[in-house]
């Protein structure tokens, strides 16, 4: 089946995007990502620990030739820091795709939308392919699309909360009005959450904690791959409408008298 996720002109077979945080070690990160089938992986930009003699690097485990590296701006609370982080990430030579997140509050980790819009304008102008993390607000999604973002990434629920899609109706409105991919980012807890996102027509799902903090991250990575695939197929297949009353599956003709 010819079904690709198209982001900034690049085709991906997998619609699951995974984070690389919170794993026990780099080898577990690598195994989980391989099992998930993800082709795009998010990373964070941080200071090198100067005194750490162990200079292993995440990219020693995730070959940038094999995976699309998606640097994030996690931890940035204003547009300047987010733009600075993206520029540093681009200099690392892994491409121009960035996950823009400008955090507004450390308890909810909800995005600061005005700052996100401000940073997105600058980054798009500088040639970045911007994937912004946003609340599930159709107006914000439209504004970011108009600015020139390569996709929009509404949250399902707070980052790391595992609550699943709290407002599928807003996500559906975003989907109706978007011409760029809509990727649910954050809040997924288990495979059915990912499947629901795909069933309502999302183009992809991004998650980290749901896999990395599961009791068995490798098994959960597989479950998420299957959840995303099942949801996507169900969306393409076209589900039956929900009805209040029964419709018999077996024919009424030919019944015994």
């Amino acid at each position: 089946m010819d079904d690709f996720l198209l982001i900034a002109g690049n085709k991906y077979r997998s619609r699951l995007i995974v984070g690389t945080g919170k794993y026990k070690d780099f080898s577990e990160t690598k195994r989980a990502i391989e099992v998930s089938g993800a082709e795009i992986v998010t990373v964070a930009v941080r200071r090198v620990n100067i005194t750490d003699p162990n200079k292993e690097n995440l990219l020693d485990y995730l070959d940038p030739k094999k995976f699309t590296i998606l640097p994030n701006t996690a931890g940035c609370y204003n547009a300047d820091d987010a733009v600075r982080t993206c520029r540093l990430a681009r200099e690392a030579g892994v491409g121009k795709l960035v996950k823009l997140e400008v955090i507004g509050d450390d308890k909810t980790l909800f995005p600061d939308i005005p700052a996100t819009l401000e940073a997105a304008k600058i980054l798009v102008k500088e040639g970045f392919d911007v994937l912004p993390y946003i609340t599930d607000d159709p107006i914000t999604a439209k504004k970011l699309e108009d600015i020139g973002c390569a996709a929009v990434m509404p949250l399902a629920a707070p980052i790391g909360s595992g609550l699943g899609i709290r407002n599928p109706y807003n996500i559906r409105i975003i989907l109706e009005h978007s011409t760029v991919p809509v990727i649910v980012d954050a809040g997924v807890g288990t495979a059915s959450d990912a499947a629901i996102a795909m069933e309502i027509g999302c183009h992809g799902v991004l998650m980290n904690t749901a896999i990395a903090s599961a009791k068995d991250p490798i098994l959960m990575a597989e479950a998420m791959r299957q959840g995303v695939e099942a949801g996507r197929k169900a969306f393409l297949a076209g589900r039956i409408p929900k009805k209040l009353y029964a419709t018999a599956s077996s024919p009424l003709d030919g019944m015994l008298n």
Partner: peptide
């Protein structure tokens, strides 16, 4: 100087 690299993140 700031020396940065990629680390695990979501």
């Amino acid at each position: 100087l700031e020396i940065v690299h990629f680390v695990g993140g979501g």
